[in-house]
Design a protein around this nucleic acid. Structure first.
Length: 490
RNA sequence: GGCGGGGUAGCCAAGUGGUAAGGCUGCGGUCUGCAAAACCGCUAUUCGCGGGUUCGAUUCCCGCCCCCGCCUCCA
């Protein structure tokens, strides 16, 4: 089945192939955070989408080289540093650290490189690109000393967003230096130093200043990935002006098609509105964790809807994510018990097809892929209920799970490891998971409860179950004895 | 005004020119001392609205309504 993605440029689903058809190498550039405050879960929806994209491409045998930029100089970072009374680099560092911490929490695979806009290497590259644009007549220095891109000289400007330049309207959200620019749509490549910038400045042929926002991506992308990249991703709000500007700058310098495929992620909504810093309707990862949810539950909640559809964030949705993951966890536990010592001898039988991967091939249709997973869960659960699943097949299911989980990364985490306490009170490990140490108090209560049950003292047994519950553990009676697990989200 | 995305059960959501996957919730059943989990069953004669094409449309075409986003800070 061919890999197909919706290319924003053509507005069509297109078959994807690497630049070099004979090579599995793919270069991806993804727009990263501006580190002026903590990223919110709407931002992370885009990063989760990119993670899914990368992991699926890798599952399909491609060698992905991914770059994500860190914007660490712009109006907001400068203002934030000024207000905090600390140097810019110190101000941005805390949000860089927080970004990686949050990304790890969501099990987002690290990009190969995280270039920062303030790295002198890229400042130099930006300056050389701007010089090239000026020499080609595609840019000019205005009276305010800033350098602007001359969009009227770049015929393709507006092609990505499908905008007609004559119809661009100012929304009044941003102050324009309309007197200095030739065209309202001309965007800054180099911003001349202003006293509000303080000591944030770099030397350039046009005087001291700092880079415009868009040029950094063109510079870092071409510096690290070359003149042409396979896939470029971002949120839909980056289509215009940011990605439009990137095309103009990059192609203006190189004369080559900059990006072969543009993929854009729809917004995360809150109460039907875009989650954004400016509206104040946002949650950060720590906000959601504080409500008792785990990183993988957030991951599930952000990943389960196709990336091109708006996704409404709700606490009900978080609860659904938790319950769905619980279902997967229970299934894995049953399979591991069923597989027993055959657990490592799993081999994929022919009936374990590739429907999961096939679904993702179609523009990352995660809903269809998860639908197939849950159908598989029902099917194998039924077989286990009927005692028709042998250990080898159970092991094969687990092997299949390991395969698709390379993309999903939904396995229980360290903080939520499942363990068994048999009636004897002995600790037993399930499958390949490492058991979390059951607190001695919990183990003691569990043992006491097992004894009460043997004595048919159900009143005491129920009281002990309530106590375990209060401690965040769940006691369940199975035919193999009492089972103690961490409660969901605990 | 221009350019996009979306509207499928209580909620989330897939999908196809041939009669609606899956998840969550709820209800009934099996199992259980009771639960839990799992399994079984039930829950949209219908896919925003109105036309058209067709033997047949949720799916294609035309018109309209609603929601969200972008139009130079935004993932």
């Amino acid at each position: 089945m061919p890999l197909r993605f919706f290319n924003t440029y053509s507005r069509k689903r297109e078959e994807f192939a690497p630049r070099d058809p004979g090579s599995p190498k793919i270069d991806i550039y993804t727009c990263g955070p501006t580190v002026y405050s903590r990223a919110h879960i709407g931002n992370f929806r885009a990063y989760i989408f990119e993670d899914l994209l990368q992991r699926h491409l890798e599952a399909r045998g491609f060698k992905v080289h991914r770059v994500m930029n860190i914007t660490d100089v712009d109006d907001k970072t400068i203002r934030g540093a000024h207000e905090a009374g600390v140097p810019l680099t110190k101000f941005t560092q805390q949000f860089k650290d927080a970004f990686f911490k949050d990304a790890d929490m969501l099990r987002i695979k690290r990009a190969d490189e995280y270039p920062a806009a303030t790295d002198q290497r890229y400042i130099d590259k930006m300056i050389s690109m701007i010089s090239a644009l000026i020499s080609k007549g595609l840019a000019y220095q205005a009276d305010d000393k800033s350098v602007y891109f001359r969009i009227n000289k770049f015929p393709n400007y507006g092609k990505l967003a499908h905008f007609n330049l004559d119809e661009l309207q100012s929304t009044g959200r941003v102050k324009h230096d309309e007197y200095d620019k030739e065209h309202i749509g001309d965007f800054a490549l180099w911003k001349a130093w202003d006293k509000e910038d303080g000591d944030v400045k770099w030397d350039s042929p046009w005087g001291p200043g700092r880079p415009g926002w868009h040029i950094e991506c063109s510079a870092m992308a071409t510096a690290l990935l070359g003149d042409q990249i396979d896939i470029h991703c971002g949120g839909v709000d980056n289509i215009f002006p940011h990605h439009e500007a990137e095309i103009a700058q990059s192609e203006g310098v190189t004369g080559k098609q900059f990006v072969r495929m543009w993929l854009h992620c729809a917004h995360l909504l809150v109460d039907g509105q875009k989650m954004s810093k400016s509206l104040g309707n946002f949650y950060t990862i720590p906000d959601v964790l504080a409500k008792g949810y785990t990183g993988r539950e957030i991951r599930y909640a952000l990943m389960r809807v196709n990336y091109r559809d708006p996704l409404n964030f709700t606490w009900n949705g978080m609860q659904e994510a938790r319950q769905s993951l619980e279902r997967i966890d229970e299934w894995l536990d049953r399979l591991r018990e069923c597989a027993g010592d055959k657990i490592d001898s799993g081999r994929i039988d022919s009936h374990f097809g590739h429907e999961f991967e096939d679904a993702l091939d179609n523009d990352l249709n995660i809903s269809a892929a998860l639908g197939f997973l849950f159908e598989s869960i029902s099917e194998s659960n039924r077989a286990m209920d009927e005692n028709k699943l042998d250990a080898k097949t159970a092991a094969a299911w687990l092997t299949w799970w390991e395969r698709i989980n390379c993309v999903l990364r939904f396995e229980p985490g360290d903080a939520r490891v499942r363990a068994l306490v048999a009636q004897t009170g002995e600790l037993r490990l399930t499958g390949t998971l490492v058991a979390e140490k059951i607190p001695t108090e919990v183990a003691r209560l569990a043992k006491e409860r097992a004894q009460a049950r043997l004595a048919k003292d159900f009143r005491k047994s129920d009281e002990l179950r309530d106590k375990l519950n209060a401690l965040g553990w769940e006691a369940r009676d199975t035919k193999d004895g009492q089972k103690i697990t961490r409660r969901a989200g605990a």
